[in-house]
Simulated scan of single mutants.
Amino acid sequence: MHRAWTKLGLGMLAAAALSACGINDEEPILMNVRSTTTGPDEFAILPAKPLVIPEDLASLPTPTPGGTNRTDATPQADAIVALGGRPERLTPTGQIPSSDAGLVGYSTRYGRTAGIRDTLAAEDLAFRQANNGRLLEQWFNVNTYFDAYEDLSLDQEAELLRLRAAGVRNVSAPPDPNRAQ
């Protein structure tokens, strides 16, 4: 009987050692938002735009393999148009438009740090590696995002009470239950 338990323990130890080989320690994933079902992903399906014959067929672009198509779905550009924006701003040109010069000047009035995105990405990676969850959470792909960032999150109710005490109105917040309407 003792020998059977030893073999079982060694088998579990070997399975645990082999399962740890698949864990990616370089870039931990705290938020697991992938679907675990075997069915279709209805959010991955984007309807194509309707086919339209232009007035002048010479205005059609030359087809390029791997390039874009006039009927390809462009959800970001469509959302920008629906909100009254200009979708041509989606393509970064590396230049700040003259219409945004005032905004950029105001937001950088106290200075700016060159390479801040790379610095923040490295700091976030170090934070996620330090807060990657316990061993069983990693093995069973448990979402540890909210636990890892809990100390950094805002207590919404306490902040709303603080703002109300200071006399700040927030029309999008629910009404104060202690105040008579």
Rank of each mutant, 00 (worst) to 15 (best):
M1A: 14
H2F: 15
A4Q: 12
A4D: 13
T6M: 14
L10K: 13
G11K: 01
M12L: 15
A15D: 09
A17S: 11
S19M: 11
A20V: 03
C21D: 02
I23T: 03
N24I: 01
L30D: 02
L30C: 02
M31W: 13
S35P: 04
G39T: 07
G39F: 08
G39Y: 10
P40S: 09
E42D: 12
F43V: 00
I45E: 09
L46H: 11
L46A: 11
P47M: 05
A48R: 14
P50T: 01
P50N: 11
P54Q: 04
P54N: 06
A58E: 13
L60Y: 03
P61E: 03
P61C: 01
T62A: 14
G66M: 01
G67F: 06
T68C: 07
D72L: 03
D72F: 04
T74A: 11
Q76W: 15
A79L: 15
I80G: 01
A82D: 09
A82F: 11
R86A: 08
P87F: 06
P87I: 04
T91D: 12
T93E: 06
Q95Y: 12
Q95I: 09
I96P: 01
P97K: 02
D100E: 14
A101P: 04
L103M: 13
G105Y: 02
Y106A: 10
S107W: 12
T108S: 13
R117H: 14
D118A: 14
L120E: 04
L120Y: 07
L120S: 02
E123K: 10
E123P: 00
F127K: 03
F127D: 03
R128W: 04
R128M: 01
A130S: 08
A130K: 14
G133H: 03
G133N: 00
N141W: 02
F146H: 13
A148K: 03
E150S: 14
D155W: 05
Q156H: 09
Q156E: 11
A158F: 05
A158N: 05
L160S: 01
R164I: 06
R169I: 11
A173N: 03
D176S: 00
P177E: 02
P177I: 01
